[in-house]
Amino acid sequence: MSDDLMEQLDLWHEEDEYQEIVDAIMEIPPEDRDYVLISHLGRAFNNLGNYEEALQQFMTIAEEGKEDPLWHYRVGVSYYYLEQYDEALREFKITDEMDPEDEDTLEFLEWIRRKTAKRTTKKPAKEALRAFDFSNFWDDSEYALEEYVSEPPTAELIESVEEELVFKLPAFYVAMMKLHNGGIPQNTSYPTGAEDYISISGIRGIGRDKKNSLCGASGSRVVIETGGYPEIGVVICDCSSADHGVVMLDYRSSGNDGEPEVVHVGQEKNHKITKLAKNYETFIRGLVSKA
Rank of each mutant, 00 (worst) to 15 (best):
D139H: 05
T154F: 14
A131Q: 12
L70E: 15
D99L: 06
E162G: 13
P30C: 03
G205S: 12
Y81T: 04
A175G: 10
I184E: 10
M26V: 14
T95N: 09
T120A: 09
R33W: 12
D209N: 12
V262Q: 07
S220R: 11
S2R: 06
K168V: 11
L55G: 10
E87W: 00
D139K: 08
T188Y: 02
A277M: 10
C215R: 02
E268I: 00
Y197W: 11
N46A: 04
I158D: 09
Y280S: 03
T282D: 14
L165C: 00
K269Q: 12
Y280L: 09
K275F: 06
T154K: 13
L48S: 04
E195H: 13
T120F: 10
Q84K: 14
L41R: 01
S2Q: 06
G258A: 01
D243A: 15
H271C: 13
G49C: 11
L287Q: 12
I284T: 02
Y85E: 05
V262N: 05
I25M: 12
D68G: 07
W12D: 03
R204K: 13
R221E: 13
T116C: 05
E101H: 09
W138I: 05
V166H: 12
A144N: 00
K115Q: 05
S2C: 05
H180T: 03
E268S: 07
D250Y: 03
T105R: 00
V222M: 11
I28R: 11
P124Y: 01
A125M: 02
G202K: 10
Q186M: 13
M6T: 06
A277C: 08
R221M: 14
K211C: 04
I206C: 07
V288F: 01
E17F: 05
S78Q: 02
Q186T: 07
E163Q: 11
C215H: 01
E15W: 00
Y35P: 03
T60H: 00
R43T: 07
Y80W: 00
N279C: 13
E127L: 07
V265T: 05
K115M: 04
H264A: 11
I184S: 10
Y251W: 05
L179A: 15
E97K: 08
D243F: 11
V265I: 14
S240W: 11
E52C: 01
P185K: 15
G65H: 05
D104C: 02
Q56A: 14
P100D: 07
A175C: 03
